[in-house]
Design a protein around this nucleic acid. Structure first.
Ligand SMILES: [Mn+2]
Ligand SMILES: [Mn+2]
Length: 628
DNA sequence: ACATTATTCG
DNA sequence: TTCACACTATCCT
DNA sequence: GATAGTGTGTCTCGAATAATGTGA
């Protein structure tokens, strides 16, 4: 068992060191995100229940005052708030998904509505919690009363199973450690084991059934398994269009923790347009988990859904996963399989991967073909330089002549800064050094992608949140649903044009400042509220010429997804001179990344002040490598 | 006993 | 619970 | 120049309680 445990530990540690915290080795379903309440508020605006999301200025101010004095006890008056929200979701689903609801779901909704209040409430409470297994004694809710009484009709319906067999792993999640030790009559030494270790030490020896029977006999407690959990998950997916938003979304929005732009989504839009699409989503989700769990990539490939014809965003999601599967194949020395995937994969980057595989496999003709194909595809534009590098390597091999590429040189300079004491970031060190050494009145900020992209987001707020049909279907989206789909910009051509048009006068400043106040805190895919304060904003508007802002906006609009990154680390302002420069900091041994170089070249070719700052440490005792 | 971490709830 | 980005170290030519 | 591996912020909550680990 120690062998099993150490194997498991090593595997978790080396292969996926990141996900360490989440699962105990034995627990299943850690990814399943089974928690959270059942709530919803979409209908609220229609029902006139509250005025939270709408007019931000007046209502949010009016709400903030009592919130501050009442402190942490905000205004959820109804103790069945979670049930109300769940009911609203159900009716929203009946309304929007009437044609797609399966018989089982239809029946669920009808049966649910016919239940007594305590039963309804208990079901929602259970659906909210993390596990789908419960000890009856742990289900205590004042507003529900006896959970056994409330559960009876749910057992009747088969939504709760009180006779369910459970596995050893489940028993371990159900019982506390001290309870387990008592149950097992374990030796003193076992008490010092960690719970997962205890589990593994038991696994080989212990037949599960007798153990459980013993336990049932001893304490006679009821165990409930929520059989309706999967169905509730599917309803949640249909409503949100994703798995990462949970039932708690509703309360948190009501409490003002999450804030979303209010958009009229009263149309008929929804995330999915057929049952098949929902199935595909769930299938993709399972495959992604399998990939995460290190399953055989070729096996996952066989489990993948076919290409989705009638949904761009789903197909993109599928392509992205295909790409990741292919990457995994490459890592497993299955370059041939990977190349096959890339050949028909529309995810950006596929063409380059194919070219590199062929180059490495000494197939210059195929490599060349992949490069040339990639160079013609708009979605592969970010890789253009890398295609050209591959091509020039191929040329060198065949013709023996290196091809030099003329490039717009990016200005750079070097500093020798003191190494920061407690290992602060190189960007921070450079910022401090430059601030201290600047004799003038310049001000520096470490902004990376946040500042300019936020300015874009504020300026183009109307366009981004334009009520295009299908873009918004529930009030908890942090952006339009088609944000990453082809044609996102084109569908809002007039709105973006009008936003950029404001740059020809001083009007853009009004728009940005207005939205900064008016929309403050509202989720947007472009605006990083934390990074923006009034002073930074004012300085930026003073020092960035409108024409430069326009260039940046146009750059982002070229590829709203990909061109959001790559902006330099630092910005330096000279407010008196209405002047600025952008500085990308590079520590010793670091180089410009591809997207950074693309953006910097874009800027220099338009005569915008950008430069690269190479940092070396003052107290460098042993230079790891010789200086250039 | 205490400190740390996970879960719940609004 | 993600996922993408940025940075680092290493190998290769 | 390419690649693998690592770290980090984030899809922003905070207070209260339960469970677990650790030391005496
Ligand atoms: Mn950076
Ligand atoms: Mn940098």
């Amino acid at each position: 068992m120690t062998i099993i445990w150490s194997y498991f530990g090593a595997r978790l540690g080396s292969v996926r060191s990141k996900s360490r915290g989440s699962p105990q080795p034995g627990t299943i379903g850690y990814h399943r995100c089974r928690n959270r309440l059942a709530q919803m508020q979409e209908g609220d605006t229609r029902a006139g229940l509250r005025g939270n999301a709408p007019g931000l200025l007046q209502t949010s101010l009016m709400r903030l005052a009592p919130l501050k004095t009442e402190a942490a006890r905000p205004m959820l008056t109804d103790r069945y708030y979670y049930l109300n929200n769940f009911r609203l979701v159900l009716s929203w689903l009946e309304d929007r998904y009437g044609d797609l609801l399966e018989e089982e779901q239809r029946r669920f909704i009808a049966d649910f509505n016919a239940l007594a209040l305590p039963a309804q409430a208990l079901l929602v409470r259970m659906a909210t919690r993390k596990s789908d297994l419960f000890r009856a004694s742990k289900l205590n809710y004042e507003e529900i009363g006896s959970s056994e009484a409330a559960a009876a009709p749910l057992i009747e319906l088969g939504w709760i199973d009180d006779q369910s067999p459970i596995t050893l792993d489940e028993l371990f999640t159900l019982l506390r450690k001290d309870e387990l030790l008592r149950l097992l009559d374990a030796p003193r030494a076992a008490a010092t084991l960690h719970k997962p270790a205890l589990l593994e030490s038991l696994r080989p020896a212990c037949r599960e059934l007798p153990l459980l029977q013993t336990w049932y006999a001893q304490c006679g407690e009821k165990i409930y398994r929520l059989r309706a959990a999967a169905l509730c998950e599917r309803l949640r997916l249909m409503y949100f269009g994703n798995f990462h938003q949970t039932w708690s979304e509703f309360v948190l929005a009501d409490l003002g923790v999450f804030r979303y732009e209010r958009i009229d989504c009263s149309g008929n839009s929804r995330a999915f347009h057929s049952r098949e699409q929902i199935d595909v989503f769930q299938q993709l989700y399972r495959c992604r988990e399998r990939l995460h769990d290190d399953a055989d990539p070729e096996q996952i490939l066989r489990e993948m859904p076919q290409a989705v014809q009638d949904s761009d965003w789903l197909e993109q999601r599928r392509a992205k996963l295909m790409f990741r599967i292919a990457r995994r194949c490459e890592q497993r020395q299955k370059a041939g399989v990977a190349a096959g995937i890339y050949a028909s994969c529309a995810h950006p980057g596929s063409a380059l991967r194919a070219a590199l595989i062929h180059e490495r496999a000494q197939e210059p003709a195929k490599a060349r073909a992949a490069c040339i194909a990639g160079l013609q595809m708009p979605r592969e534009a970010p890789d253009r330089d890398r295609f050209e590098r591959v091509l020039s390597r191929l040329d060198r091999k065949t013709h023996g002549r290196p091809v030099a590429r003329a490039r717009n040189p990016i200005p750079d300079f070097a500093i020798i800064a003191p190494r920061p004491v407690p290992a602060a970031s190189v960007e921070q060190a450079a910022l401090e050094f430059l601030s201290a050494s600047a004799a003038d009145s310049s001000r520096l900020y470490y902004v990376e992608n946040t500042l300019i992209v936020s300015l874009f987001g504020l300026l183009c707020w109307e366009a981004i949140f334009a009520p295009i049909p299908g873009a918004f279907f529930h009030p908890y989206q942090h952006g339009p649903a088609d944000l990453h789909s082809l044609g996102f910009v084109e569908r809002r051509g007039a709105q973006f044009a009008s936003a950029l048009d404001s740059l020809s006068s001083e009007r853009y400043k009004e728009i940005i400042l207005h939205n900064h106040l008016e929309k403050a805190g509202i989720q947007s895919p472009f605006v990083a509220w934390r990074a923006l304060d009034q002073e930074l904003l004012n300085t930026a508007l003073e020092c960035f010429p409108a024409s430069h802002l326009r260039h940046w906006c146009e750059w982002i609009l070229l590829d709203a997804h990909g061109n959001r990154a790559g902006f330099p680390d630092l910005v330096q302002f000279w407010p008196g001179e209405r002047r600025y420069r952008l500085i990308e900091v590079k520590g010793p041994g670091d180089r410009l990344q591809e997207n950074q170089r693309r953006l910097l070249e874009y800027c220099t070719s338009r005569e915008m002040p950008v430069s690269v700052c190479h940092v070396r440490w003052k107290d460098q005792v042993t230079p790891a490598r010789a200086d250039p």
